[in-house]
Computed example of a mutant assay.
Amino acid sequence: MSSIKLYPELYNHKHSSNLYPLVITTNVVMVVDIIINHSPLSCLTFALTTLGTAVIIWRRELNGLLNFVTKLNRRYKFTTPALITLGTFSLLDALSTPAKAQFFQNAQTWMTSNFSGAGEAIPLVFNVLRGLFLIYLGISLVRVIQSARQDEDWQNLARTPMIILIAVTVGDILANLIIGSGGTTT
């Protein structure tokens, strides 16, 4: 059976014209990601996105190539190990980068630079707050998953942690607006 008979909506040009702006926007975002994060994962994601864009736009012209790759995969089964290797590399690359997003990092830097007599107390307080927040979110997530598995009303349980997460995020944004860049004052 041909793929046109199985998935006729993929070959309907009336609906695919709405897809092009989204695909182009995705490629632009990938270029910005490469500019910001100079990592192999960003380049790999951009390459796969560009390849996917080419396949979407020129799918009729590439139909013979895609059929050849499908036959090759059926015969030699090379695609699955290659994708597993590629996925493992991407996952290890993503996990090996340091976490850059810490809430209240600028506030901690500002307080440490302006209250130098406090020593290690300010980083300790902020790290304890971060730890308590992460423990609370973890426990809440476990409770929400358990209630969803038991067909209970998990949405009410998820509402409070989401409100607290939003409140902490807004608090971090407001703290950044108040203190500025987090550097020392002159």
Rank of each mutant, 00 (worst) to 15 (best):
L92D: 06
T25P: 00
L134G: 00
N18Y: 15
H15L: 11
Y136Q: 15
K5T: 10
V128Q: 09
L65D: 02
T26A: 12
E9T: 11
T112I: 11
G183D: 09
G171C: 06
Y136N: 14
A82G: 11
F104W: 01
P81Q: 08
A94L: 05
A101W: 10
S17R: 08
G131F: 14
P98E: 14
W58I: 00
R159N: 13
I164F: 03
S90P: 04
A99S: 12
R75H: 08
L177M: 11
S3C: 04
P123W: 06
I36P: 01
I173M: 10
T26C: 10
V28H: 00
M30I: 03
L83M: 15
V128A: 11
E120L: 13
G138Y: 12
S140Y: 03
A54C: 15
V32M: 15
I164T: 02
A158R: 07
T97C: 10
T26Y: 13
F46Y: 05
G64L: 11
N67C: 12
L72Y: 08
S116L: 12
V32K: 12
E120P: 08
L137N: 03
I36D: 11
R75V: 07
F46M: 05
G171S: 15
I164L: 10
A101F: 13
R74V: 00
T169G: 14
F103C: 05
G87Y: 02
N63D: 14
L129C: 14
T88R: 00
T79P: 00
V32Q: 12
A107H: 02
R130H: 02
A158P: 06
F103E: 03
T50H: 04
L41T: 01
A47Q: 04
T25H: 05
A94K: 08
A158Q: 13
N73I: 01
E9V: 11
L65C: 05
V31N: 05
W154Y: 11
V55S: 06
G138D: 11
L44V: 13
G119R: 00
